[in-house]
């Protein structure tokens, strides 16, 4: 019972922060940058592991956030030197991910971080990996990390909601209004990296991408207002966590995989049935107009 509670809490915290950030990634047409960041944080985590000699959350957060920002910076740099944007994303994230995998597999004996955990996460073991502070058991560490990430996301979004909104829809106007667009760009990227690391251990590198993009895209088909989109995205994320966990329980499969698959099912349903942008209703409306 209590294990279910912690797993669900972890999944819900993860999907809430991913859902919020994902909206901005979708609106700024940077969905694949999210993909790149979530892969690129791996070497940061591995290096932090090597240096701290254990699962030091703070070191991992810092290492991975730095690597995430470095990857964004490198992609930007390649792009400005004339490489196509998707090719530069492809080069940078695969290279960084390869470095991470090599570090992990060369030190497989010394560090307790295996490739399966990196890819799929181990959300099922969340409750046994606890954080001890001053000798007291404070509860699962992932919950703390994700809670911290979610808090940072919510606080920054609330403080700078107007700025984020304007840079998302019209960066040129935002720049003309005197908003430091680049600063907000890197702030968003930093938040994405931080969330990726915090979610990394629970759902794994590749599924973070799914939780960043899929619920936000689902919300994007439900509404035309940013505020509502953020809300729907979080709701879609949480719904897929809960339903996905149930599915994983029933079919005895990976929890992370089931959560992303459920998010995908929700997306497909929305894609077909959404009142405004859904495929079926649009077709129906077209037919009625033609008749």
């Amino acid at each position: 019972m209590s294990s279910d509670f912690w797993i669900l809490l972890t999944a819900i915290l993860m999907s809430a922060s991913c859902g919020l950030l994902g909206c901005f990634l979708i609106l700024r047409k940077m969905a694949l940058i999210g993909d790149a960041i979530s892969h690129a944080v791996l070497p940061g985590i591995a290096i932090a592991f090597l240096f701290s000699g254990g699962r030091d959350s703070v070191a991992m957060m810092i290492g991975a956030t730095l690597l995430g920002l470095l990857s964004v910076f490198l992609i930007q740099w390649l792009r400005s030197s004339g490489v196509q944007s998707d090719a530069s994303i492809g080069i940078i994230f695969t290279a960084l991910f390869a470095v991470g995998v090599i570090i992990v597999s060369l030190n497989a004996r010394n560090i307790d971080l295996d490739l399966d955990c990196v890819l799929f996460g181990e959300i099922a073991y969340v409750q046994w990996d606890t954080w001890t502070w001053n000798g007291t058991d404070m509860g699962p560490r992932s919950v703390w990390m994700l809670g911290f990430a979610l808090m940072a996301v919510v606080i920054l979004l609330m403080l700078f909601y107007k700025q984020f909104k304007l840079t998302a829809f019209d960066p040129a106007l935002a720049a003309a209004c005197g908003i430091p667009v680049m600063l907000f760009h890197y702030m968003l990227m930093g938040l994405v990296s931080m969330t990726s690391v915090a979610s990394f251990e629970s759902v794994g590198a590749i599924l973070v991408v799914g939780m960043l993009i899929i619920p936000a895209a689902t919300a994007y088909l439900w509404t035309d207002r940013l505020g509502m989109m953020l809300l729907y995205s979080v709701v879609a994320g949480i719904a897929s966590s809960v339903l996905g966990y149930g599915a994983a329980y029933v079919w005895n499969a990976s929890i992370g995989g089931s959560i992303v698959t459920t998010a995908g099912v929700l997306f497909v349903l929305t894609f077909l049935l959404s009142p405004r942008h859904g495929l079926l209703l649009r077709k129906w409306r077209q037919r009625r107009l033609a008749a």
Partner: peptide, 15 residues
């Protein structure tokens, strides 16, 4: 692309 990629991979991991 991101949606399809992560959805397929999610299904793959599940299987």
């Amino acid at each position: 692309m991101g949606i399809v990629l992560s959805l397929f991979f999610g299904i793959g991991v599940m299987l």
